[in-house]
Amino acid sequence: MAAASRAVETARRALPYVVVGPPIIHRGPAGDVHVDLPLIYQGFALDRIHYDPVSRSPSPKGRPVHAMLRDVDPSSIAGEAEAILGELRVLDAAEYRGPEAAWAVPVAWRSFIVAHIKVSGDGGEIVPDYGLTEEVRRLVG
């Protein structure tokens, strides 16, 4: 499975160039707030990191935090987002996703996985999350 190793290496080479996009803040009908930090690479979103605005730290992938807060200031998250980004690391294994013909390489923050970087089946190219790219674009454009 040379392609898997190559995919991990590609994700590892991409990570230093990944930046955090503008925070995506969702407000639920019950007044809850849910914050995601999009990971951006070369203008395309790769995945989102769930962010806990109360503990001001990431939440594991698959466990978004719905905090009961009146408001969240996006600019206050920027500094923490940079710190989180600096602590991300690519794990040494990949999962193959058949329908997308791509490898999903896990990205961890401290002891848990927070995101995936998708890499093409041959392990050489980064595969964007087009839906999330649109969502980020709508926030800025």
Binding site: R13, P16, Y17, Y41, Q42, E125, I126, P128
Partner: peptide, 10 residues
């Protein structure tokens, strides 16, 4: 000093 970035899928 970082290694070159990998390409995005075309």
């Amino acid at each position: 000093r970082a290694p070159p970035p990998p390409p995005v899928r075309l």
